[in-house]
Amino acid sequence: MRLFDTKPRGVPFATGADVPLTLRAQGSFFIGGRDIRSDALSAVPAYAPSGTVVVDQVYVRFAVPAAVGGPPLVLVHGCCLSGQAWETTPDGRPGWDEMFLRAGFPVYAVDQAWRGRSGAGIAPAANGDGPLPTVFSAGREDAWTVFRIGPRFPEPYPDTLFPVDAVGELWKSMVPDFFYALPTPNPTVPALSALARRLGGAVLVSHSQAGLYPFQAAEAARDGIAALVALEPAALPDPAGDLSAFRDLPVLIVYGDHVAASPRWAPRLALARAFVAAANAAGGRAELMSLPERGIRGNSHMLMQDRNSDVVAELVAAWIGRERPHGAGGAAGRPIGGA
């Protein structure tokens, strides 16, 4: 199945792990970060409380397929999760990073700043003085409804496509979240800008809490940003604001099912519709993809982990192929590293 006008091409998203996956390169690196001096680094007598540490860095795990057939994708996870959310599904199927690799896309999956493998110090992000930063962990009872697995814990929607029998693996993957301790824009935003520039034409793919970050990166500078894909973004730019940054920029916003019944997500879907209309009126190339409106029912908030995650990935890949984002693929086949 051919997804792009360029060669070489990848393999279908439904292809299983029994087909060998050949890579040109893989690895990891950090991008961004800054040094701070703190007198509150340690409460352990064996380690000095004063010293200099790095904060705001972003961990990037990358893989480049041997046969590159699409632009590099940067995958940015949402609340209470890490880049692991893209690596595999709770029931053990390939995650989006493997699916897109098999289809010919170089994939760069990040951990947000102060999250997961990006690290989180106990020194406050601002200057190392004062109380410990605000941090929270989301309980499964709230996550169940926020992720729209079901209307109330532990009852699933009858048609849910989330792999409920394996939900315990999702709970294991959730990590402490420093979101409320960090400035606006989140330090992840300039890191995304730097990564896009280095890749020379990347599609930034965000989910939920991170939904706004690629839009903020594009508002700061369009260099290296070929397109934006936002899976159920928790926030978007103000439709009544200046949207000139999105002129001629391909933008896809994807929403799953049972949104109307959610006091949290129904207003956000309405905002997405308003943003798409306003962005296009300002010369944009924005599209809202509502899966139920396409006859695809039962998707949760965790679109990349639902049982039809390959179908959703295929729709996203087909959109990228149709849009053929300007400038995509400048460094698609070249691994990068360094800050």
Rank of each mutant, 00 (worst) to 15 (best):
P49W: 00
G33F: 12
P94N: 12
Q26K: 15
P90A: 03
A220Q: 05
T145Q: 08
S262V: 09
H301F: 04
V64I: 14
V175N: 03
L195R: 06
A191M: 04
D310A: 15
F162S: 10
P325K: 05
L236S: 05
G224A: 10
N308G: 06
D248P: 00
V76G: 00
G121D: 10
E293R: 10
T22E: 08
L315K: 07
R222W: 11
P325E: 04
G283I: 05
G201R: 02
V110G: 02
V203N: 04
G211D: 07
P65E: 00
F62D: 03
G284W: 12
W86G: 02
R148S: 03
G69S: 02
V11H: 07
A279L: 08
A67M: 02
M289Q: 12
D223V: 10
P154K: 02
L182P: 11
G10N: 00
L231C: 03
P335Y: 13
P335K: 01
L182D: 12
P133R: 12
A272V: 15
R334I: 15
R115T: 14
I336T: 10
G298F: 13
T6E: 15
A245Y: 08
A46R: 03
E219V: 15
R9F: 00
A266E: 13
G327V: 15
D35V: 13
D39I: 00
H301L: 14
R34E: 12
